[in-house]
Amino acid sequence: MRTDLARRIVLVVALTVLAIPFVIPTVWMIASSVKPLAEIFQSPPTLFTSSPTFEAYAEAFRFQPFARQYVNSVYIAVVVTVITLVVSSMAGYAFARIRFPGSNALFLVVLVGLLVPSEVTIVPLFQMFTEAGMVNTHWPLILVTALAAPCVLATFIMRQFFIALPGELEEAARLDGLGRPAIWARIALPLAKPALSAVTILTFLASWNLYLEPTVYLTSPELFTLPQALTRFTDAYGGEMWNTQLAAATMTVVPVLIVFVIAQRQFVEGLAHAGLKG
């Protein structure tokens, strides 16, 4: 019993030390965003300032259409996530539960989408979207994310989940006269909540974090997304506006973090129960 307690203490201490680099950067970012500029690089550095100022937060909105950029990021991530949920749950279901000629070969074709790095496709895609008149619009960010790589991962996850689903439920529904689309919508999807929540998290974050794509496709500040906007807090000559950057970064992180802390059980359990067993 005593060794058990000792073990537990060692475990908690070890975990606490390990957690430092995971937590401190976020804390430091939030704390520094209210420091006067001169204090950010003060040596020795401070963690918390004695004279907080929210000037940098106001400046973030003055300097760029930051609210607009915030809306852009949120709505793009939401649209992408919704499309991905529909597309991947349909495809994943079909690949897992429906027998049709060529399904294995087609699944392999789809999987290739997971393996092609976006750097291979970005130049040709840029040219294609240019030809289609979609550069400097949100279309490329939505279409590519919702239908290519992140969606393929989602399809993969959905397939793994549906494969593990017991077949009896479907048989019963079939005897009740339901067709495939109805079975998918009324039987399979409600059961797939853990997998759907995992896909929601992964897809939303994939879209939320996109950096290379907006950098390439978007040139108007009012169309920018947040990661891209964060690197643009530089004065007219390229000098970094450190405190503004930190204030803006804090504003992009804190709401997501709050949502995460509130919903962390669903987040983690959702991923954990998605039936990801290879």
């Binding site: 529909v86 597309v87 991947s88 349909m90 495809a91 279901y93 079909a94 690949f95 429906i98 027998r99 049709f100 000629p101 399904s103 087609l106 074709v109 789809v110 290739v112 989408g113 092609v116 291979v120 496709t121 130049v123 040709p124 895609l125 040219q127 294609m128 279409l143 590519v144 919702a146 239908l147 290519a148 790589a149 969606c151 393929v152 399809t155 067709g179 495939r180 689309p181 998918w184």
Partner: peptide, 30 residues
């Protein structure tokens, strides 16, 4: 069986188009 197969193809079509248009065609262009 046939109806099932058709549903299967329809269900995977959006994903398949996505991969072909946004992955395979660009690789060819590259």
């Amino acid at each position: 069986r046939r109806r099932d197969a058709l549903t299967g193809y329809l269900f995977i079509t959006p994903q398949l188009i996505g991969v072909v248009v946004f992955v395979l065609v660009p690789v060819g262009l590259a």
